[in-house]
Amino acid sequence: MKALAGLYVQQFKTTMAAMFQYRASLLIWMIGQVLEPLVYLIVWSAVSNSAGGSVGSYTTRDFAGYFVILMLVNQFSYTWIMYEFEYRVREGLLSFALLKPVHPIHSDIADNVSSKLLTLPAMVLIAVALAAAFQASISPQPWAVLAFIPVLLMAFIVRFLLEWTLALAAFWTTRVSAINQTYFVLMLFLSGQIAPLTLLPYPVQILADVLPFRWVIGFPVELLLGKLSPAEALTGLGAQAAWLLIGFVLLRIVWKAGTKVYSAVGA
């Protein structure tokens, strides 16, 4: 445990050094992270205003609150591991990772957390500025604010486990981008990224309930926005716990199978 902590600290330093090298691309990446929810915010504000100030249970100011929180939640749970893995397999970097006496997921977690910590202050500032500019209405009960912390953490872990597992597709195919595209489209529609899920048709909502996407984005956002009852929050946490378990088991199985394939066909 202490040794792992040492690894995490060292990875943090390495990630920081690397990010310092990539200042420009980091800035572009952050602009992207802000721009996407901002576009949806503006579109939905316009729709809401033309519909007399609200759509369903969302007022124009609710939409502003929704997408500002979404920006933060997405920033928190986002991973880039699926692009990374394809590159690793192609460049033979995975071979080096497999020869290290530590599971490679640790470096990835540490790297992800490190870069999140480093960009978080800027993102929070941007969020506050946007919330003020669009007069966002965010009014959670104190319990919801408290519950948001474990929910956000769970969202990160679940998304990380699932995307890391999906990234392992690189063991089987060199065309990972097709899988990534499908995944991102599903994510866009079924996580609440493009619109609050309660505004979507009922069958889509059912689908979103049984799939993991909603639980890693839409659910934490609605919780902090103050749209959920304690019972709904508890149900959501339960769904997250279930997906955490599923994700963990899947990761183990797929990792084992993937490394087996890799060691059969060669690096």
């Binding site: 040794a3 600290v9 060292q10 390495t14 050094a17 090298q21 033979g92 970097l93 071979s95």
Partner: peptide
């Protein structure tokens, strides 16, 4: 395993960082 045609060092940062990372890993 050292391979002359493959790199394990992190490309964009000084080698000393990769060394330190290996210190922690091993």
């Amino acid at each position: 395993l050292v391979m002359g045609q493959r790199n394990q060092l992190v490309w964009d940062i000084p080698a000393i960082h990769s060394f330190e990372l290996n210190r922690a890993i091993y």
